[in-house]
């Protein structure tokens, strides 16, 4: 028995090293899996802010990264609990990643969504990706005027604003979890050269 335990522990530690190398390879500076709360949103943004300040990133890049992080984290905290507890292993949880490359930062979120929401999400993201700066401004103005704050406190403006602030398309992917649920991944990119 003892030898098995030792072997498992070693296997796990080897995995941790592979995981560490993998993070380095993908230039990941922050990764989190679990429930996203407001306290965590504040902690992650202030950690990233102080790292960027230390690395003398320009103010404008710092503001954009901060903005995208807040919108992405609030999206998960507002929507990842759309599931009954224990309905899937993903209920109420999400993954959050920040990567820093030579030319840009990327902020990636992943959370489970009910398959019934996929069509709406896809059409909204496609619409946003198809619009230029003026089109986005019009959509933003329309939504801020006509949209109502949801009971979760979302204004339906997050995705629109991420594309407006970054000027880059939102990349997304849906991977099936089971017959009712998919994992929704979304990446926003912020250029380090403004």
């Amino acid at each position: 028995m003892e030898t098995t335990e030792t072997k498992d522990a070693k296997g796990f530690l080897e995995f941790v090293y592979q995981f560490y190398k993998s993070m380095k390879e993908h230039e990941i500076t922050l990764v989190y899996e679990g429930e996203i709360t407001h306290q965590l949103t504040k902690a992650f943004t202030s950690l990233t802010e102080s790292n960027m300040a230390k690395e003398e990133e320009s103010n404008s890049v710092q503001k954009k990264v901060f903005h995208v992080m807040v919108e992405c984290l609030q999206n998960i905290s507002k929507h990842a609990d759309d599931f009954a507890q224990n309905e899937t292993m993903f209920s109420g949880r999400g993954i959050f990643l920040v990567a820093k490359g030579k030319d840009d930062y990327s902020v990636t979120t992943g959370n489970a969504v009910d398959n019934s929401r996929i069509a709406d999400l896809k059409s909204l993201l496609e619409q946003i990706n198809s619009l230029d700066k003026e089109g986005l401004t019009e959509l933003y103005k329309k939504q801020i005027k006509e949209g109502r704050l949801s009971d979760k406190g979302g204004a339906g403006l997050g995705f629109i604003d991420i594309k407006r602030k970054t000027g880059k398309n939102l990349e997304y992917h849906f991977l099936p979890i089971n017959s009712q649920t998919s994992f929704f991944l979304l990446t926003s990119t912020i250029s380090r050269t403004v």
Binding site: H67, V70, Q74, I144, A155, G158
Partner: peptide
Amino acid sequence: AYFNTASSKMIL
């Protein structure tokens, strides 16, 4: 100095 999109609705 900064406001999120949910706040932008309230500022309106």
